[in-house]
Design a protein around this nucleic acid. Sequence first.
DNA 1: CGGGTGGTTGAATGAAATCAACTATGGTGG
DNA 2: CCACCATAGTTGATTTCATTCAACCACCCG
Lengths: 260, 260
Amino acid sequence: MTRDRATLPDESNVSTGRSKPPAAHAFVDKLNTFAPLEAADEERLRHACLQVRSYRKAQDLIREGDQPGPVFVILEGWACRYKILPNGNRQIIAFMMPGDFCDMHVGVLDEMDHNIETLTAARIATIQRPEMEALVEASPALIRVFWWTQLVEAAMLRATIVSLGRRNSLERVSHLLCELCFRLRNVDENGFDRYVMPFSQIVLADAVGLTPVHVNRVLRKLRQEGALELGGSSMTICNLSVLARIAGFDDNYLHRRLKS
Amino acid sequence: MTRDRATLPDESNVSTGRSKPPAAHAFVDKLNTFAPLEAADEERLRHACLQVRSYRKAQDLIREGDQPGPVFVILEGWACRYKILPNGNRQIIAFMMPGDFCDMHVGVLDEMDHNIETLTAARIATIQRPEMEALVEASPALIRVFWWTQLVEAAMLRATIVSLGRRNSLERVSHLLCELCFRLRNVDENGFDRYVMPFSQIVLADAVGLTPVHVNRVLRKLRQEGALELGGSSMTICNLSVLARIAGFDDNYLHRRLKS
DNA sequence: CGGGTGGTTGAATGAAATCAACTATGGTGG
DNA sequence: CCACCATAGTTGATTTCATTCAACCACCCG
């Protein structure tokens, strides 16, 4: 539960979900799934994401107290938002995967109130503030799309609150894994039967507010139910419907359709 | 923990925090605290909030599955967002008090993923979508202000996640009460020494993810510490610093200053 | 080969839930 | 006006779930 800040060598270069061609512009896929973008807007977006940086596993993107920086767009790999409590405990607040925009409008704030770090090796595009403003000025469709992104993010936070507040450990873990699987569908078109989660049980524990020991026991039970497989240092969901049943999962909050 | 949907007669017409003059436009106070608005914008805002409705206690404003409606601006009274789980448990996701805007941009979504209901009798202004768009078109300052509102709302959700995930019952209750007190400061200028919380222990329990019984015990302890007083059907925070110490409260996430 | 990290398991402990009374209060209807 | 009922708060006893503590394993990497 306590954690060290050292940036570890990236021993595992786990790729997301299932490997797909170059996957370089997952975010366009994602945005297209709910509101088709015109070619021009799509091009604008791609163009804005040309400045790419590679990160190792467990590297900070931004830390609490920092001035808000550019908008990040995850191209490959996973990251997470988290906070550390005075006693050293940490709580992971949200996961970010390919196709996710983050901190769309934090520019107006004085400083960050949480940290973001990579969970795997990652390639992440940065869009500077002025460029961002140019984007939204150029296209009302993009404004809508960005709003949608923000709103879904807020909805996921609310769902997390419900989980942490009122679900037991088994439901909690199941619900989180379900959400991650559903989100992978937005950007990963092949094979909806198996989803690999590129993080440790410790990370999972920090996300669901349990101890790693207990998460381990929960996972054992889920494995016995046939919901997932635990291979070495990663877990693979192989039966999403079992998971969904246990969690009582309803994907409405992911808002995969816009108002028609 | 299970709840009934009946709209009770509003026996208690508790007013917020401390009574203040007509309090009719708390939201302007609030927005002004962090980013002074020009007179013209202030007037635009006031004008947009002329359509006001009164609600009784425990009335729904909007329910899960509904089409997103207008933007709500709370003028008097409190409300909350919540979700009900299949087993009947409910989790309160956020509290809303005078000065709060809600659901700024939900217009783009297909349907609501949670409910909102009043916790006390309330007066609430509605701003229709077109009017909202006119507002942001008229003034860039208002856009900024609305973004700020959204960002702070998200930050509060994140803080809630941290609380539910990694704080024990005593810290959790204390942290929530702290947040509510600090938020009251934005809109309630007189007397920062006592804050009355206009909701039952049951409501508090649904917000912090505990049972009413246990919340009761926690409150007893807080009372013994001199942090609050339990009078009849409401509690009054009378020593915020004790509460803040117990919770390890840091108000940075409320972002009461904008980037200068 | 040794050390570090992550995973696994068992046993003891602890925090919060559950169950069950009982009180206080306010509202309602006779 | 009082009897009754519903809701909220309070307290104690018991149970359940998750934590803590303590090993131990497996693996990768230097």
